[in-house]
Design a protein around this nucleic acid. Structure first.
Length: 240
DNA sequence: AGGAGGATGTGCT
DNA sequence: GCACATCCTCCTA
């Protein structure tokens, strides 16, 4: 259901210049809105993860696509903040990141889950699968719950839309994207280890996953290679 | 040139 | 809970 959201304002590049780990929480509760020929779908962002091209200082980020430096695939992460890095995951899913930090830093923020707040019908259509008895339509809360689902719900594909600019909203392959941030600073959020990303020997697993505390629309936890479940009470920076 | 593995989702057991 | 889909990227030979 669509809510009385706090006031929103369009994001600027300056909003996204910090390290991904610092910018990420400010995107919680914001909205990514994508228009295509088929219509508009907007999601309220409920869960994200921060990835760093060069770590946050001297510490490398073992889980980042940008950890080995700039490549053709991850070039968007190394460019201007506010462009969308859309990549193919497991040959099937197009996942969406917002590039962060100044050019050349390689930071990105993965959108892991959101609530569809506009274009419910179109999102249901995109996310429906053929079943034994016609189309099987997911429950509304599952439409954009998970990074692959979110990408499909808003209609972005890696091959077509990687690199599109959510600040100037310049259309790309028939789609345009706009990012809104909450006008008021933040609501309560929680942090934990990223999903499916392990630490490396000798380093700890950093709490670079952020979600809106208590929100029902958060992706299912996946242990991955040694990532551990958030410890009870481990970090709810905004909630107390 | 070849191959392993992946920031995942779904359906079945 | 587990297997599998599906294909691209980057590392290694």
């Amino acid at each position: 259901m669509v809510l009385a959201q706090s006031a929103m304002r369009p994001a600027t590049r300056a909003d996204l210049l910090g390290y991904a780990v610092d910018v990420a929480p400010t995107l919680l509760g914001g909205v990514l809105r994508v228009s295509t020929d088929d219509g508009v779908v907007a999601v309220r962002i409920t869960e994200i993860e921060a990835y760093h091209g060069q770590g946050t200082g001297d510490v490398p980020d073992p889980g980042s696509h940008a950890r080995m430096g700039r490549t053709d695939r991850n070039a968007t992460m190394w460019g201007e903040p506010g462009h969308l890095y859309v990549y193919l995951s497991h040959g099937i899913h197009s996942c969406v990141n917002v590039a962060a930090g100044p050019e050349g830093r390689g930071d990105g923020i993965l959108l892991r889950a959101g609530e569809v707040v506009e274009g419910l019908e179109l999102a249901r259509e995109r996310r429906s699968l053929p079943g034994p008895d016609g189309l099987r339509v997911p429950r509304d809360r599952d439409l954009a719950r998970g990074p692959g689902r979110l990408g499909q719900a808003i209609g972005l594909q890696h091959a077509l839309h990687d690199g599109m600019d959510a600040i100037t909203r310049t259309p790309r392959a028939g789609a345009s994207a706009e990012l809104f941030l909450r006008a008021e600073p933040l609501i309560a959020f929680s942090t934990g280890p990223r999903v499916g990303v392990a630490g490396i020997a000798g380093t700890s697993v950093f709490p670079w996953r952020f979600w809106i505390t208590g929100d029902s629309i958060v992706s299912p936890f996946r242990p991955g290679r040694g990532a551990t479940e958030p410890l009870a009470g481990s970090a709810t920076p905004g909630s107390t």
